[in-house]
Computed example of a mutant assay.
Amino acid sequence: MTEARIIPLNDRIRSDVAHNARVWNHWLGGKDNYPVDRAVGDRVTGMYPSIGEVARADRAFLGRAVRYLAGDAGIGQFLDIGTGLPTAGNTHEVAQHTAPDSRIVYVDNDPAVLVHARALLTSSPEGATEYIEADARHPERILRAVEPTLDLKKPVAVMLLGTLNFVLDTDEAQHIVRTLMDAVPSGSHLVLTHPTLELGGEGNEAAMRFWNENATPPITARSRAEFAAFLTGLELVEPGIVSCARWRAEPGAVEVAQFGAVARKR
């Protein structure tokens, strides 16, 4: 019998193909990326100049949403799926600053993210932070892996920020959301962001097409109606479905073509 060959983590990282987590890191001003990521990212920026604003707005939305959940909503557990590369204002940092006993599990399937997981695996003494390698397309596997760090009998904030847009089949994306939310109790919350060709994002269509031809994983935009369908049966937290840049933001915030919403399971 031939022994299975374990591929070292660093050998799984492709430096010759642009990858979303690293390009996103580039747009946020980070250094954890390769020349190919910067080249593709800059080409997308040339085609759709506001993409950097989208990345920054998505990150700022995360901070506002987590502060609300850990504070006013009293949520002490966070399941952050598709976390991406660590940067300033990670979920555990924001949550534990507000509530030091918060417990966070990060999920990603990008080997580059796993290499940097040590930067995520820090925690306040009162709380806990964990990282698991898994694909959002396998929610059942994720749910089995989060315990004992998370207690699924207590409310959890399930976070899918800029993640479902990499699940091209809408029925599959809806299945992921339903499976996760069916597994958590009343009082849990769903936190979503998703790119759209609405909200002034029409110019992003050509950039997305370029991305799908030159980078990985492929991406899709969705309409407001498609985004709203992910939230069916949940109670929207004010102000509902808006550009993520304007969710509980200061007056005059610039709109970006990225929907954002927080919703509560009754």
Rank of each mutant, 00 (worst) to 15 (best):
G63Q: 09
F166Q: 10
A245C: 14
N109D: 09
K265F: 14
K31Q: 07
V158S: 05
P155M: 13
A245G: 08
P155N: 14
M1L: 14
R43G: 06
A95T: 00
E213H: 06
F210S: 03
A225W: 14
L199S: 02
I75G: 01
W24Q: 05
E202C: 05
L85R: 03
D80Q: 05
P139R: 01
L190A: 01
L121C: 12
A112L: 08
V115A: 08
G200M: 02
F259E: 05
V113R: 01
T91K: 02
R224P: 06
D169E: 10
H175C: 04
D108K: 07
G41C: 14
D101H: 12
G52V: 07
H26W: 00
T87L: 02
H26G: 02
W211I: 00
L161A: 08
E255V: 14
A88Q: 10
A134P: 13
G233R: 11
R59N: 06
I13R: 03
R118V: 15
N20K: 06
V156G: 01
S188A: 05
Q96S: 09
G52D: 06
G233D: 10
A39G: 10
P86G: 05
E238D: 12
G233W: 10
W24A: 03
V184E: 00
L152S: 08
D16M: 03
S186N: 15
L161Q: 06
A225M: 11
E130L: 11
A225S: 15
V184P: 00
H194A: 07
Y34L: 09
L143T: 13
V44I: 07
V262K: 02
V66Q: 08
D169F: 14
G52R: 11
D169T: 15
N25S: 08
G74D: 10
T45S: 11
I104W: 05
E172M: 07
D171T: 15
N10W: 08
P239D: 13
A117D: 06
S243G: 14
K265N: 15
T83N: 07
Q77K: 11
V262Y: 00
T129F: 07
V115E: 10
A65R: 12
E226N: 03
R43I: 02
I7P: 06
P125M: 12
V191P: 00
T196S: 07
T193W: 00
T83L: 04
M159Y: 03
Y68W: 15
R224Y: 14
V107R: 03
L160Y: 03
Y34D: 02
V44M: 04
L79W: 00
T179D: 02
A145L: 06
T163M: 12
D11W: 12
V254Y: 06
D80M: 02
V40H: 03
H92P: 12
V115H: 09
